[in-house]
């Protein structure tokens, strides 16, 4: 009711102001990026670097600040954006892309509707790879397939690629996998793999590349599988998961269960009902920021990869995910329950 009243008010005010004056809206205002994870993490770092440059590209040059609202794997922040934040374009939500899939699968706690959020973009399309230690004996897909005992992979929790990717892979392409869940993050999985407790795990290539660089360089760790639509430039010879898929259904399950949620992992969105011109202004600013050489240099200094997706494209990806074939959804629910 209240939101409606504000909306009406905003619409009335907006219609009273001549069209040319609208860009002035952001002048002197503060835009908040609400990050669904705690300070110092990957999501937080991306947001802080973006916050330093985004304002310059928005008409009226607002101040952009970062706020952390950690909890429930960023679900608290996502719900906050949908239910509490005012749809005035001054609050940007930053949460995990896996939550969109969680809505499709009808998982508990979701109080937002991804179809109604206004999507702003993704700074970096992530991809998921499976990295295993040499000590585990699995150094290639062939040795993995031939493994007599299930290969132990570490999992953090449902909704993360460490958990979902192994389960989808085991169910669709029949890789021998034993998922050991309950690690407190990919850092702990890495530690457990190095001590020989686990064989490895599946998560974002960007993170594997930077945090496990030493292992990759010395050959103690190898990337055995990449779960992508086309091979990564820096992993030309690593086999693709889809090449293992024997049926079209398996391919689709890998796509909807792993590839898409990982790709849109770090998404940015605005509250539903944000005035269209402000959405447009912020989407354009997002794209401009991603191309800004100063931003790129800043991101490189913090070791962040930039491979962005615009708001329009993100909206299409989300819509496709929401329109998933019910039979496929049911299958995926069975795998990821």
């Amino acid at each position: 009711m209240k939101r409606l009243a504000i909306l009406v008010l905003v619409v009335i005010l907006a219609s009273m102001v001549p069209a040319g004056a609208q860009p002035r809206f952001f002048e002197g205002k503060t835009v908040r990026i609400v990050v669904g994870f705690s300070a110092g993490g990957g999501y937080d770092t991306y947001s802080r670097v973006i916050a330093r440059h985004l304002g310059r590209h928005v008409p009226g040059k607002p101040t952009v600040i970062v706020e952390n609202m950690p909890g429930a794997g960023s679900l608290i922040a996502a719900n906050h954006l949908y239910k509490v934040a005012k749809p005035d374009g001054l609050t940007i939500g930053n949460f995990a892309g896996g939550l969109v899939l969680a809505q499709v699968l009808g998982q508990p706690g979701i109080e937002f509707d991804a179809r109604k959020l206004e999507w702003l973009g993704v700074p970096s399309r992530e991809v998921c790879v499976c990295a295993l230690t040499k000590a585990s004996g699995v150094t290639s897909l062939a040795t993995w397939m031939a493994a007599t005992k299930p290969v132990k992979l570490g999992g953090v929790g449902p909704g993360t690629s460490t958990d979902d990717a192994p389960r989808v892979l085991a169910a669709t392409v029949g890789l021998p996998i034993q998922l050991v869940r309950g690690y407190k993050g990919t850092a702990e999985i890495r530690l457990a793999a190095e001590s020989g407790e686990l064989a490895g795990g599946c998560w974002q290539w960007e993170s594997v590349k930077s945090t496990w660089r030493q292992g990759l360089e010395s050959g103690d760790v190898s990337v055995v599988l990449q779960i992508v639509t086309k091979p990564l430039p820096d992993l030309p010879s690593v086999p693709l998961a889809s090449s293992l898929a024997k049926t079209e259904e398996a391919r689709q399950l890998i796509n909807a269960g792993i590839i898409v949620p990982t790709e849109i992992g770090r998404l940015y969105a605005l509250a539903p009902g944000t005035p269209a011109d402000r959405v447009q202004a912020l989407r354009a600013a997002f794209v401009a920021t991603m191309r800004d050489p100063e931003f790129v240099a800043d991101a490189r200094r913090s070791k962040l990869e930039i491979d962005s997706m615009s708001g329009e494209e993100l909206t299409r990806v989300v819509q496709n995910l929401m329109k998933l074939d019910p039979a496929l959804v049911a299958k995926l629910k069975g795998i990821l329950k």
Binding site: S38, A39, G40, G41, G42, D44, T45, R48, A187, E188, R190, L191, E194, S210, T211, R213, Q214, R301, S302, K303
Partner: peptide, 27 residues
Amino acid sequence: AFGVPASVTMAILMGAFLIQGLVPGPS
């Protein structure tokens, strides 16, 4: 040595590491 934050303070310090472009680990 491992890039595994042992406590809240360390998690934040590690965030600072990454911001500075230092990757914790054997290096």
